[in-house]
Every structure is written in structure tokens, then in C-alpha cells.
């Protein structure tokens, strides 16, 4: 397979996943704000700017952190390279460049999604209810993935597409957890230190906050099935990072990336055959053998930073091995 085509597949996977992650994050944040609106210190919009790493960028361009502007920024602003529209457009551009490699159904799906998305605006999102809009974005991503599963030949293009998708997913999960964890801990502290807190405030932060976090990565129901006891920060972190079966956990995603890379190289030996396999294999064994207690003991923020750095390294190693030489 042409390296450039592999590169396009890899990035289509990443962009579509990124668009979906953004949609989930804003959707959940939007609803959590509604629930926590009566707190004296409600969840701020700026926290999701930190998740996406766009805080500075945003503040350069916009004065207010009002909801509409935020939605404009995350969904429609084409000068924001991570906005949903930018991601879908970039995915489409990549798909257009390799139309003959992917199935025509995949192209049609991504093309139609892009054309439809261009018809939306912030006004229309409010008119139709934000939730249904974000649901539509998620559906589009799932539809694309489903079509890819159903119509794209098993082989390198599919493995690069999946490698991109799962690597992006691992990174997104680590990032959301990192920022949210930090926010919720801060909120909890503020709520506790105040002499008079409104009744139920603690519950909102300590329970609903974590539920919202689970929902934002689509993990709430899966979590419930796994843990029958309550929602605690440590359990949530352990679930999202180390659970082997949940499709958006970091461990599961990295395992999938490794599977893709092994299929691409055809390497069946336990030892890695190139830099990309080495990077992904190292992270996967770390996540496989780590216990939740050990992880919490390592200071979560630092550990999540380490995970994100590892994901970046895997991305660079894949590029150097296969895509740009």
C-alpha cells in the first residue's frame, strides 16, 4: 500500500474519532452544567477548553466564554483545527485523496456527513436541541465505522484506519480523564471548604460529576455493569484506564492499536519488529500488568500525562516506520 494512502487512512480514523470525542464531551458538559446550574461555583466552560488543549487559542480569538461562542468554536469554527467541522472536512479531504482505496459507501457516507454538517449553524443547533445535534454527529461517526467494518477489505487500509481511530481514542480518554479529574477534585474541595453549601451540592459534585465524566466517554452503562457499588474517583479512573474489555478504555484501545500494527507487519514473534511495535507494545504491557492501586499511588495527573506522551510517541513511530520515509 502507498505510504501516502496509509497516512490518509490513519488520519481519517483519527479525525472521525476526534469529531466524535468532541461531540460527546460538549454534549455531556452542556447537560452537566444544566444539572449543576444552581451551585454557586458551577462547572465552567473553560474546563473543556483545557481538555481539548485549546484554552489559549480560544482566548486569543474570543472575549466571552458564553455557551454559544463555545459551541461555535468547537463545532463550526474552521480556524479551529480541532472543531468538528474541521475534523470532518479533513477526514473528507483525506478520503477524497484515496477514494479508490476505500469503498464507495465509505466515501459517500463521509461526503454526505460533510455536506449535511455544512447546513448546520449554532442557531439551528439550539432550534433542534443541542443533544439531538451531538447525537447526530456521534451517529455519523458510528455509521462510518460500521460501513468501514462492513465494506472495507480486511487488510492494510483497514488496519491503518483502525490504528488511527484507537490511538486517537486512547489519547482522548486519557485527556478527558486528566482534566475532569482535576476539575472535580477542585470543585469538591471548594464545596467542602465552604461553611454553607446548598443541600445536595456534595452529591452533585461527587456523584453526578463522575457520572457525567463516564457519560462523556460513553462509559456509564458499562461501568455500572462492572461495578455494582457506587461511583468513586479511583474506580472511575481504574475503569477508564485499565479495563480490558471496555472499548474506550486506554488499555483496550492500545491493545487494538497493537493488533493492527502486528497485522500490518505480519510479525508473530513476541519481540517487536520495528519502532512502532516497540512503542505500542511497551505501553500495552504496562497497562496490562498495572494494578488499580499501583496506578492511583503513582499520582494520577502525572500518570495521565505519561499516557498522553506515550500515545504521541506511538503516533510518531508509526509515521516514521510506515508513512513518511
Amino acid at each position: 500500500m502507498l505510504s501516502r494512502d496509509a497516512d490518509s487512512c490513519f488520519w481519517i480514523g483519527r479525525y472521525i474519532e476526534r469529531a466524535e470525542a468532541t461531540a460527546r464531551m460538549i454534549d455531556v458538559h452542556y447537560h452537566f452544567r444544566l444539572e449543576s446550574a444552581w451551585l454557586s461555583e458551577p462547572m465552567r466552560w473553560s474546563s473543556i477548553l483545557s481538555i481539548s488543549g485549546d484554552l489559549e487559542e480560544y482566548q486569543l480569538r474570543y472575549a466571552d466564554e458564553d455557551e454559544r461562542t463555545i459551541i461555535q468554536f468547537f463545532v463550526f469554527d474552521t480556524t479551529n483545527y480541532n472543531s468538528i467541522l474541521s475534523c470532518i472536512r479533513a477526514a473528507r479531504e483525506n478520503a477524497r485523496a484515496i477514494r479508490e482505496q476505500i469503498s464507495s459507501e465509505m466515501w459517500q457516507c463521509i461526503n454526505t456527513t460533510y455536506l449535511d454538517l455544512r447546513e448546520w449553524s449554532v442557531e439551528r443547533v439550539y432550534e433542534r436541541s443541542p443533544h439531538s445535534f451531538f447525537q447526530w454527529v456521534k451517529d455519523a461517526s458510528h455509521l462510518f465505522q460500521g460501513i468501514a467494518n462492513r465494506t472495507l477489505m480486511m487488510g492494510e487500509s483497514r488496519d491503518f484506519l483502525d490504528a488511527g481511530r484507537f490511538l486517537e481514542r486512547a489519547g482522548q480518554t486519557a485527556r478527558i480523564l486528566d482534566v475532569r479529574y482535576h476539575d472535580l477534585m477542585r470543585l469538591a474541595e471548594e464545596t467542602n471548604s465552604r461553611a454553607q453549601t446548598p443541600a445536595g451540592a456534595e452529591e452533585i459534585v461527587n456523584v453526578h460529576g463522575w457520572i457525567a465524566l463516564l457519560k462523556s466517554v460513553g462509559a456509564y452503562e458499562a461501568y455500572r455493569k462492572t461495578f455494582h457499588e457506587g461511583v468513586t474517583p479511583a474506580r472511575v479512573a481504574a475503569f477508564l484506564i485499565l479495563n480490558p474489555s471496555f472499548p474506550a478504555s486506554v488499555r483496550h484501545s492500545i491493545g487494538r492499536v497493537e493488533g493492527c500494527l502486528r497485522r500490518i507487519s505480519g510479525n508473530r514473534e513476541p519481540t517487536p519488529s520495528n519502532a512502532a511495535e516497540r512503542a505500542v507494545g511497551r505501553l500495552y504491557s504496562e497497562l496490562t500488568y498495572l494494578t488499580p492501586d499501583e496506578m492511583i499511588a503513582r499520582e494520577l495527573h502525572l500518570f495521565l500525562g505519561h499516557l498522553q506522551a506515550q500515545c504521541n510517541e506511538i503516533g510518531s513511530a508509526i509515521a516514521a516506520t510506515y508513512l513518511q520515509y
Partner: peptide
């Protein structure tokens, strides 16, 4: 797509000693 051949751009190809190659994975 219809012919089942690679679609390449100039940057996908290179020449070495009068032979043409494409950069693949």
C-alpha cells in the same frame, strides 16, 4: 479504482538509477 491500480502523486514516487519506485508501507 476501476482498473484496480494505485493512484499516485509525484511525491509517492522516486527514481533510482533509472528505475521508478513508489513508496509503500
Amino acid at each position: 479504482q476501476q482498473m484496480g491500480i494505485e493512484l499516485v502523486e509525484g511525491r509517492d514516487l522516486f527514481v533510482n538509477e533509472n528505475m521508478v519506485y513508489m513508496k509503500t508501507t
